[in-house]
Nucleic acid binder design. Structure first.
Lengths: 151, 151
DNA sequence: GGGTTTTAGTATGCGCGCATACTATCGGGC
DNA sequence: GCCCGATAGTATGCGCGCATACTAAAACCC
């Protein structure tokens, strides 16, 4: 019967493996970010915003959410939390009354920079067991993302 | 600055890629399971239980959760939902008053079998773009899981 | 100008992983 | 017999992805 093929044992389906590995990766990220008082999404958004800030255009929430691949609902709520901690500012957008112009405060930028190094260390460590194999692995992930892409 | 290396663009970190791919995979699973009225975890637990049922020992929640790599909290709550839909039974364990003996009802087993084929088709389709590369990919996932294993 | 369609952002609610804390039972040592 | 640590299960609460639905402003069209 087909139950014996993939879902009898959790270790035999690429999908279930993917799911488990991602859970462990998220746990590692959580641990690495705890000292900085940031959750995973808070970190990603703060770091992405700091990165995008170099552009000429004011950064809107939509732009940030698209870039960081987070959904707009989370973005909204997380940015409010970051604003209340004075890590980002949300000013009215100069040319669009619907939108907001986001930018990190100096404290936010500083925190982002410090957290980024910690997260990158955590990330490198997590994938270190793959050794050189990490390149084809990343490429495979990119392939999967493109095919089932932003439709 | 280190912000430019990995977290400026979401597509450059293996971890973020992993996260995005898993999200898409979960979305695909959700879509495939919708016709059967099962969520992802409900399906995994029901299918795993149907698989484990062949054993001599009565299946406890702990055993099921370990096998399916889901956490006991979810397991508890999901099994209650499945029980209320008459897909599983939770009888008292014969030798341990703390535990419960789980087994799928005939309807549960039937639903599991039908859902498994749908999920497997979805899974195969999702990873089809990798072609032969799916084998080393799966192996890499397994490696990551073992290193950061059940400590 | 007046109308429709798009878009930015938000509220609400669910699925699910996980951390913490608790009860109830089992087991071993004495 | 009794005590104590381990274990099965549950409650509570948060992080976060996502679906649905809504408001308000912009952009387009005539």
């Amino acid at each position: 019967m087909s139950l014996a093929t993939g879902f009898g044992s959790a270790e035999e389906s690429p999908g279930l493996l993917l799911w488990q590995v991602t859970n462990r990766w998220q746990a590692a990220q959580r641990a690495a970010l705890r000292p900085y008082g940031l959750t995973h999404v808070q970190f990603v958004l703060l770091a992405s915003l700091t990165y995008l800030q170099a552009e000429d255009e004011p950064v809107t929430q939509r732009r940030l959410a698209d870039h960081a691949a987070t959904d707009p609902m989370m973005t909204s709520q997380v940015l409010r939390a970051l604003e209340s901690r004075a890590l980002v500012t949300r000013l009215p957008h100069p040319h669009d009354a619907r939108a907001r112009a986001l930018s990190p405060t100096p404290e936010g930028r500083d925190l982002a920079n410090r957290a980024v190094t910690a997260v990158e260390a955590c990330d490198t460590d997590f994938f270190s067991t793959l050794g050189v194999e990490v390149a084809p692995f990343t490429e495979a992930l990119r392939t999967l993302l493109l095919r089932r892409g932003p439709e």
